[in-house]
Amino acid sequence: MHWHVMGWDEEAGILLLGHPALDWDSFPVLAQDLLAEWELSALQRDSGADRHCWQLAFEECRLWLHFEHHSGCWLSADDEEGRATLGWLARQHKD
């Protein structure tokens, strides 16, 4: 079982991700697997009542990994460089 790209919204800078075993409790362990597989580094990890939000780095680029139980999991970017990086990651990890 592994992570897969479910969709890519280039304009919004959002890369939708899926994993067959993903749920609230499994997210921290599975997210670590994603980071290792995609060569991402965690800079900060936050979680609340219904959301995980991790700030990540890919080389010099900053990205965000989000998980909400009812909305799913996605990577997002705040700027053009991040959106370009997400597009590159989407192409590299497309099934």
Rank of each mutant, 00 (worst) to 15 (best):
M1P: 13
M1R: 05
W3L: 11
M6I: 04
G7M: 07
G7T: 09
G7E: 04
G7V: 04
W8I: 01
W8G: 02
E10T: 12
A12V: 04
G13F: 00
G13T: 05
I14M: 11
I14Y: 09
I14A: 12
I14V: 11
I14S: 05
L15Q: 10
L16E: 11
L16W: 14
L17S: 05
H19A: 05
H19K: 02
P20F: 10
L22Y: 03
L22V: 02
L22P: 08
L22G: 10
L22D: 11
D23V: 01
D23C: 10
W24L: 05
F27E: 01
F27T: 06
F27A: 09
P28I: 13
V29R: 13
L30V: 03
L30I: 01
L30Q: 10
L30W: 02
D33E: 14
A36V: 00
A36S: 05
A36G: 01
E37L: 10
W38Q: 00
W38P: 00
E39Y: 08
E39A: 14
L40F: 03
L43Q: 13
R45Y: 10
S47K: 13
S47I: 09
S47W: 14
G48S: 14
A49M: 11
A49E: 14
D50S: 09
D50P: 00
R51Q: 14
H52A: 09
C53Y: 10
C53S: 15
W54K: 01
W54S: 07
Q55R: 14
Q55P: 00
L56M: 04
L56W: 03
L56H: 03
A57K: 09
F58C: 15
F58E: 11
E59S: 14
E59F: 13
E60T: 15
C61T: 15
C61W: 03
C61G: 00
R62L: 08
R62I: 04
R62H: 11
R62C: 02
L63Y: 04
W64I: 12
L65H: 06
H66S: 12
F67V: 08
F67C: 09
F67D: 10
E68R: 13
H69C: 13
H70N: 15
H70Q: 15
H70A: 15
S71W: 11
C73V: 11
W74F: 10
L75G: 07
S76F: 06
S76R: 01
S76Y: 04
A77G: 15
A77M: 08
A77L: 06
A77R: 01
D78I: 00
E80F: 01
E80P: 00
E80H: 01
E80A: 10
E81P: 03
G82K: 08
R83S: 04
L86S: 03
G87H: 05
W88A: 07
W88Y: 13
W88E: 12
L89K: 07
A90W: 07
R91P: 00
R91S: 09
R91C: 07
H93G: 02
K94L: 13
K94I: 10
D95K: 12
D95G: 12
